[in-house]
């Protein structure tokens, strides 16, 4: 049945990226939780406070990168979970397209929100 396994390799890059984003997210997610629940309490968040944080280019870039990697990690994770369940054919293509669009929309919306918070849009 070797013929079945004779096409281009889509798995390897995704697998590696999933791990690289994971390593990044571990650090940033821990930082994010710490920042917004222990340093600043979530209940005390104000628009002015958020604006003050987002105006720092470093913080802004970290948050946007956080959004992009988290979205990739999450969307890719969901897609893989479905492939593991035996999703294939047309259904698989449709699911991939829907997930990609949802992910891109999330990144676009999130980046726009971050720009607004920083006062650059």
């Amino acid at each position: 049945m070797a013929e079945r396994y004779s096409s281009f390799t889509p798995g390897g890059t995704g697998w590696l990226l999933q791990r690289i984003t994971a390593a990044f997210l571990v650090v940033v997610l821990a930082f994010h939780f710490f920042q917004l629940h222990f340093i600043t309490h979530a209940a005390d968040v104000t628009f002015a406070g958020t604006q003050a944080r987002m105006e720092h280019v470093g913080y802004f870039l970290t948050m946007v990168l956080f959004l992009v990697t988290a979205t990739f990690h999450g969307i890719n994770g969901v897609y893989n979970a479905l492939v593991n369940q035996g999703l294939d054919g047309i259904q698989k293509k449709v699911v991939l397209a829907v997930l990609t669009i949802a992910g891109l929309a999330l990144i676009a919306q999130g980046t726009y929100v971050a720009l607004v918070m920083a006062g650059w849009a």
Binding site: A2, Y5, P10, G11, G12, V83, N84
Partner: peptide, 14 residues
């Protein structure tokens, strides 16, 4: 390696 690195090869292992 090309055989096992197909989409339904090693990457499926969880």
């Amino acid at each position: 390696l090309r055989i096992v690195e197909q989409e339904h090869g090693v990457w499926r292992c969880q």
